[in-house]
Design a protein around this nucleic acid. Structure first.
Lengths: 198, 198
DNA sequence: GCACAAGTAAACTGGTTAGTGCAGTTTTTT
DNA sequence: AAAAAACTGCACTAACCAGTTTACTTGTGC
């Protein structure tokens, strides 16, 4: 690998680490250069400003997370099993270190500079990408009975987010895999109690 | 009112305003004194350090919010009506400007300095104070059937928080009263579908 | 009305930080 | 091997900011 790409990666890695642990504001470019084992001047040769570096970090982290499988509705499989697949994928994402990092950095910035807010709502990660389609298909097949599908989808996702994502984000607690399984089971039970076609 | 109390209030009001709109870090003590129409020295006569001022702000805001009625279970009233009362109170709190302010300021600080995390989990506001007791009573009366009561209480509150609180916190959208009513109705429908005793 | 508590403006201290300029070294390309 | 591109270390600027000092004025209680 070329030296210059190597250095660029060192800078991005260091920035990801420091922005996450200390916050963007509290990370000085001198610290950053030190951690990246690169001269400060080199940092500025790659990124014109601190803000440009910040943008590049967000972009790189989003790209890392953008991949991820889609669960397609299959009438031959019990609905609770399919929902469990979706929920398990989502919980794995929401509790992954990579996702928590980008979320923390992004949310801190958004709260400080509200003009960046749509940055967050625009970005579609995880099951948010396909859950509406899944629910439509399940309704069409007569397995579920939902009047407001986007709303019901949010209800399902928000269950997972509330129990798994926000507590981790605010540094309150992490869940054990057993707790995660319980959260998933209860979210599905709640959802099916309301929306399963009888 | 004595001049000194007047000045103190001006300082706290200015700090609340600026800490909210610009963040604690981005608010300088010079700006703050200007906005409060008070000399900078006077700020320091009332509050030894910026951090002391920040603590005082949080305390004042919490005190403002601490009051709020408790809904007690009443076997003579339909359960959905009672849950609606609880949800309405909670949504009113979660979407109030006062609550959003203190939450935003507190959360920004917590995310920057994770050692303050228990500050948030300790503080019990809104229906979190009494919902467990309410659910226990409802189960005892045979109206609801819940195995894990604290978990179920969280499921209910989290519905409201997810739809009302977080979107406002991140500056994404505000709900109209009609939308709020819809959110409340659906949260209750979801909850009762799962937990109402048959 | 006097004494003291509180407020004021402005300059200052000491520290931090984003970003630049430069002279010299190493790596890559041709 | 020579030219170009990238990296390095270090000193520098210009700005910002928490908190202090000083010399002075205004409000309050007795």
């Amino acid at each position: 690998m070329k030296l210059t790409d190597q250095k660029r990666m060192q800078i991005l890695d260091a920035a990801e680490e420091l922005f996450h642990s200390s916050g963007v504001e509290h990370t000085s470019m001198d610290q950053l250069a030190l951690q990246a084992k690169v001269s400060k001047r080199t940092v500025y040769n790659h990124f014109a400003t601190k803000d440009a570096l910040f943008q590049a970090i967000l972009q790189r982290m989003f790209d890392k997370l953008a991949q991820g499988g889609e669960v397609k509705f299959d009438a031959a499989v019990p609905i609770d099993q399919q929902l469990r697949r979706i929920a398990q994928d989502e919980v794995a994402l929401l509790s992954s270190a990579a996702f928590l990092r980008v979320a923390k950095i992004a949310i801190m910035q958004v709260m400080q500079r509200p003009e960046l807010a749509q940055l967050m709502s625009d970005s579609s990660l995880g099951c948010k990408r396909y859950i509406d389609k899944f629910l439509v298909d399940a309704c069409t097949a007569g397995v579920l009975k939902i009047t407001d599908i986007p709303f019901a989808g949010k209800q399902f996702i928000y269950q997972l987010k509330s129990f798994v994502f926000y507590p981790s984000l605010f540094g309150l607690e992490q869940q054990t895999p057993a707790q995660q399984a319980h959260i998933i089971n209860e979210a599905i039970a709640l959802f099916l109690a309301r929306y399963q076609a009888k």
